[in-house]
């Protein structure tokens, strides 16, 4: 399949993620949308890796390694993020981010 298909797919996924982050109010869903963005990036990274490998670059595998690093960092973020969301939930019994603005006053 041509690499453009992958690019379009990943960009579409990425945009869905971005829109989700901007429009949803539930912290967990926002979080999932962020993960969606990261995975869109992973997909794109791998397809670019393939593209450059086909173009004859010997170091195209580095992009795939990059994906591993993204996964690891994403996992670290997940760990921290889940901990934070749990903490917030235990204190407020809600994961709606609108409640946060109420806390301010």
């Amino acid at each position: 399949m041509p690499v453009q298909y992958y690019i379009f797919l990943s960009i579409a996924l990425f945009c869905i993620g971005v829109m989700g982050v901007l429009m949803r109010r539930n912290a967990i869903i926002i979080f999932m949308c962020i993960e969606l963005m990261l995975n869109a990036v992973n997909l794109l990274m791998v397809s670019f890796s393939k593209m450059w490998a086909d173009a004859g670059r010997v170091d195209a595998g580095s992009a795939q390694l990059f994906v591993f690093f993204i996964m690891v960092v994403a996992a670290a973020e997940v760990a921290v993020g889940l901990a934070i969301i749990t903490m917030v939930y235990r204190n407020t019994h809600s994961v709606d981010i609108n409640i946060l603005n109420r806390l301010k006053n």
């Binding site: 926002i30 962020i34 993020g81 934070i84 969301i85 903490m87 981010i97 946060l100 806390l103």
Partner: peptide, 9 residues
């Protein structure tokens, strides 16, 4: 908590 969650997201 709020700061943390907001910063994280």
């Amino acid at each position: 908590n709020e700061a943390s969650l907001k910063y994280f997201l």
